[in-house]
């Protein structure tokens, strides 16, 4: 049996890095999308809702392939980024993007649930007490949907840890560069005699996921306690 190699550690660290980066980068967009879908009536709302939720129903491989078409050398966004010297595909950034796109609907859904629980009258009260819409957004909607934001972030991070299909297509499976835990498990599972390593990485996944769950629960409990001083 193989001992834990620096590449395995790199895979674990990369998974964490990709998950954290994808979650942090998606949060403002997820919050904005949830806000628009919850509180605003506008033309194209149904289209936005559909686009946001599409990755939830599409096979991740399809999402990966579409991202590849978009960001590849001949894709319109890829060509644009290439021109300014930014390469996305087959780098860890591609893994972040794949995770962000696939996890985005989960993030938005959780934040929306949080926002939908906010009484309209609180928003009305805030506005009539002199708050501009952005003031209400920051001082009422943001704190009151915080539980949804925490839940959505946990879900998104967890989804990112498990992301495989889109990542392998758009980021590849380059050890030390784009090989995350699921890709490493895939490699080990296919190689004879490496089952123990596959199992070890599975265990690491379980530990990280449990840690996220515990963190989420403790944050939720602290929030609940803060509401009842």
């Amino acid at each position: 049996m193989h001992s834990i190699s620096p590449a395995d550690f790199a895979a674990i660290l990369l998974s964490l890095k990709v998950g954290v980066t994808a979650t942090i980068l998606s949060l403002p967009f997820g919050f904005a999308a949830a806000y628009l879908l919850t509180f605003k009536e506008f033309r194209g709302r149904v289209v936005l809702d559909g686009v946001v939720n599409l990755p939830l129903v599409l096979p991740p491989v399809v999402v990966g392939y579409l991202l590849l078409l978009l960001l590849g050398q001949n894709g319109w966004l890829g060509a644009l980024l290439n021109a300014v010297g930014v390469r996305i595909v087959f780098t860890w950034r591609a893994a972040v993007l794949a995770s962000a796109v696939v996890g985005f609907p989960l993030l938005v859904r959780s934040i929306r649930i949080g926002m939908e629980g906010i009484d309209d009258k609180l928003i009305q009260a805030s506005r009539t007490l002199g708050a501009h819409w952005y003031d209400t957004l920051v001082t009422i909607i943001l704190p009151l949907s915080f539980k949804g934001i925490v839940a959505g972030s946990s879900l998104m991070f967890a989804r990112s840890l498990g992301e495989f299909g889109a990542t392998i297509i758009v980021a590849g499976n380059i050890p030390g560069v784009t090989r995350t835990i699921p890709l490493a498990i895939y490699d080990y599972a296919g190689a004879p005699g490496e089952e123990a390593m596959a199992l070890f990485l599975c265990l690491v996944s379980v530990v990280i996921s449990l840690a996220v769950l515990v963190l989420h629960e403790s944050l939720a409990m602290r929030l609940a306690r803060r509401r009842e001083p």
Partner: peptide
Amino acid sequence: VPPEKRRIAIVFQHPHLFPH
């Protein structure tokens, strides 16, 4: 004129206090 500029406050049927 937007609500925040009207200086018209409301007391609702229920208190609707900001819970946080």
